[in-house]
Structure formats: structure tokens, C-alpha cells
Simulated assay, not measured.
Amino acid sequence: PSDFSGFTVDGFKDEFEKLVETDSKSIVLDLSKTEFIDSSGIGAIVFLYKRIEKKNHKLMLLNVTGQPYKLMTLLRVDKTIPFVDSI
């Protein structure tokens, strides 16, 4: 989404749950169209990451730019969840 904040995060709970249950070893979230993220959005991604890691699977964030990039690097999310430019 272009806005991944407290207003929109709840709409992704079911989709994130499906990602946790998948058998895929690597999951890539495409953030190329995300122009704004807040602590709720980051919290949802970190929560997803923790659940995926428990299954020994990997989460990567694709095309993190602009405000989301600035905030996530400030909070050091990139030190835990890899940012990638392509798949």
C-alpha cells in the first residue's frame, strides 16, 4: 500500500497470517509503492519477521525508499530484516 500506517495495518492481518503459514522458505514484501510508514506498520513487519524466523524462513523487504527507508534505517530495521533492490 502507499500508506502502511495504523489506519491500514489491520487490513493486512489475514494476508500476513497466510504468509506465516506458507511453506515458502523466503518471503519478500514489496514496498516499492509504500510512501509512508509509521510505528504500527513497522511493528506489523517486525511481528511478521519474528513469526517467520521461528519457522527458519527468511523475510526480505523489496524496494524500500523515501520516508519508509529513512524511518526504518533510523530504527535499524535494515540490520535485522534485509532490504533488497531486486528478487
Rank of each mutant, 00 (worst) to 15 (best):
T8A: 03
I52D: 00
P82E: 14
S39V: 09
I87E: 12
K18H: 08
I27T: 10
L71E: 03
T80G: 04
F4S: 01
S40P: 04
P1T: 11
G6V: 10
G6F: 06
Y49F: 15
K33A: 10
S24Y: 09
I87K: 10
I27E: 03
K13S: 10
S86R: 14
E35P: 01
V64F: 05
K50L: 08
G66N: 11
D85R: 14
E53T: 10
G66A: 12
K54R: 15
E35I: 11
L62N: 03
P68H: 08
S5N: 14
D85P: 00
D38I: 07
F7E: 14
L29G: 01
D30W: 04
S2P: 01
V20M: 00
L19P: 00
M60W: 01
Q67D: 11
G41N: 07
V84Y: 08
S32Q: 15
S32H: 14
L74N: 11
V9R: 00
V28N: 05
S86P: 05
P82M: 12
L29R: 02
V9H: 02
K25F: 09
R76V: 10
I45A: 01
I52A: 01
S5Y: 00
I87D: 09
M60S: 11
K18T: 10
S24L: 07
D3P: 00
H57N: 13
E15C: 00
L74W: 11
V9L: 04
F16Q: 04
H57A: 14
M60Q: 14
T65L: 13
T22Y: 04
S24E: 13
K70D: 15
V9F: 03
D78P: 07
S86D: 15
G11M: 04
S39P: 05
D30C: 07
S39E: 05
M60K: 15
I52F: 02
Q67E: 15
D14W: 07
V28C: 09
K18G: 06
T22S: 15
I81C: 08
L62P: 03
P1S: 13
T73D: 11
K33T: 12
I52Y: 02
G6Q: 05
S40F: 13
V77A: 06
F12C: 05
D78H: 15
K58N: 07
Y49L: 05
F4C: 02
L59P: 01
L59I: 01
K79T: 13
K18C: 08
M60E: 12
G43D: 06
T80Q: 09
D10Q: 08
V9S: 02
E15L: 03
F36M: 09
E53I: 12
H57S: 12
V9G: 02
P82S: 14
V84C: 06
D85T: 14
P68N: 07
S5H: 00
S39K: 05
